[in-house]
């Protein structure tokens, strides 16, 4: 997956994104030694974190031998570029982030925010995980999911389309089928 890796040689970037939300529990989780060690073990070299409105600031690092290079920012207008450059995406459970990542064909771990009051977002992540389009985790299980994941077993997501709705709406209103 992804054809940009060849140009940046051995760089393998993990992109973490929380969209417009604040999700400190996720940023804290990726900043732990056990998650970073697991990512290193799986061959990733860079960790880029989009932290949104969160207040927890991860420890940056230049990287080098046996450590991940860690960088972070709050917001960016070029999320698509970061997604394209990533070898693995770790995202919050917002449908926008999920489908944008899947459209880019990147392996994805969705981390569900358990602090949200109306936590319907886990429904979508779990359904897509059941269908093997992504992995679903909680902040405290993230390191285990990274350790156990098998990216080759993921099934590419084929974007849906709205044609069936458009047909039904037109037919209901009495327009002739085309």
């Amino acid at each position: 997956m992804g054809d940009t890796e060849a140009t940046v040689k051995s760089k393998k970037t993990v992109f973490v994104t929380v969209g417009t939300t604040s999700f400190d529990a996720l940023i804290r989780a990726v900043d732990t030694q056990e998650v970073k060690a697991e990512l290193l073990r799986r061959g990733y070299t860079q960790l880029l974190i989009q932290m949104g409105r969160g207040s927890y600031i991860p420890t940056k690092s230049e990287g080098g031998d046996e450590t991940l290079a860690v960088d972070c920012f709050t917001f960016s207008s070029s999320i698509a570029d970061h997604l394209r450059a990533a070898s693995l995406v770790i995202s919050h459970a917002g449908s926008g982030s999920i489908f944008e990542t899947l459209r880019h064909g990147k392996p994805l771990i969705v981390v569900v925010n358990e602090d949200l009051m109306d936590n319907h977002q886990s429904e979508l992540a779990e359904e897509l995980a059941d269908r093997k389009h992504l992995y679903c985790a909680r902040p405290q299980t993230l390191h285990r999911v990274i350790a156990d994941m098998n990216l080759d077993s993921l099934i590419p997501y084929h974007p849906g389309d709205a044609t069936p709705v458009a047909k039904l709406v037109s037919r209901f209103l009495g327009f002739a089928d085309d």
Binding site: S95, F99, H120, Q121, E123, L124, E126, E127
Partner: peptide, 8 residues
């Protein structure tokens, strides 16, 4: 209904 609604 939104795609995010799977069960309810």
């Amino acid at each position: 209904e939104s795609i995010a609604r799977v069960q309810r």
